[in-house]
Design a protein around this nucleic acid. Structure first.
Lengths: 143, 143
DNA sequence: TCTCGTATTGAAAACGTTTTTCAGTTATAG
DNA sequence: CTATAACTGAAAAACGTTTTCAATACGAGA
């Protein structure tokens, strides 16, 4: 966890940016979550590390981190954007509709499909976003 | 085109809703586009058919149509929600990052993968969201 | 065809999220 | 330690969306 933070911090410096307390707080908040967070949630959690972290700074920092591909914006149902650290590998999420528990999934068996799609449409495919919803074992029992 | 409109109009009536001029205008606007439109765009185009179509009405009508599964909300890069007529069946979207052209895709070859996922995680899978991004043929050329 | 009740409408205002502005502060190179 | 440019928070502006409310238009029934 701490290694991961140091790596990100270094990445910032290497890119010519300062590692400020607000930014460190935001990174810590993001490192501690598995599910995407809204800017407001990030502010709230980040204030554990930097008491007067402003929402404006959260927006600016997310923009910066997104540009560096450290975070990615994902679509979430209600309030549209959440942010999560992009994981090195290729993962997707399986989310419980009831309790919002999240299972990370490696791979998706979509490779062949995407290849044929590229051939058929002439598009050069650069990425995809897959989110699967369902009921986790617990919530199935308590239905 | 006109058949399609009549079908939708009838669907509204069958569901106990009135076919008003604003609603007709919105349907016409949606029928004439291949790519998702934002509420503001729908208002703008709809005003060709109903001069004083209000934005509020666009929102309300989209909510109604979405509930009837006549339109569906899709995620678009910048301003998050666009609306397009949903085609019957199970479709996903392939969206150009540059010009936002949209190709509708039938099926996704995800069935087997989801089955094995359910077995592995104990989740009862109820749905999934897949959106693919890339560069369309045109934008590849003008890169 | 006309009348009437109700669903539906537009304007205004409220609301939440995101962006801009600006003066003060902080990280870091030297 | 100092200088300075990047960075910050607060306030206000600018969005997109929702709510409220009085006025209107649709369409069922006479």
């Amino acid at each position: 966890m701490n290694d991961r933070f140091e790596t990100l911090a270094q990445q910032l410096r290497d890119d010519g940016h300062k590692l400020t307390q607000p930014r460190a707080a935001i990174l810590h908040a993001l490192l501690q979550t598995a599910t995407p967070l809204s800017p407001a949630e990030i502010q709230e959690r980040g204030q554990t590390y930097c008491a007067d972290l402003g929402l404006v700074t959260v927006y600016r920092t997310l923009e910066l981190l997104e540009g560096m591909q450290i975070v990615r914006a994902v679509h979430v149902a209600d309030n549209c954007h959440g942010y999560a650290l992009s994981t090195p590998g290729h993962t997707h999420h399986l989310v419980c509709e009831r309790c919002h528990a999240v299972v990370e999934i490696e791979g998706c068996g979509l490779g062949e499909f995407l290849d044929s799609l590229a051939a058929r449409t002439g598009y050069q495919i650069t990425g995809h976003w897959l989110e699967i919803s369902g009921l986790c074992a617990n919530c199935q029992r308590n239905n």
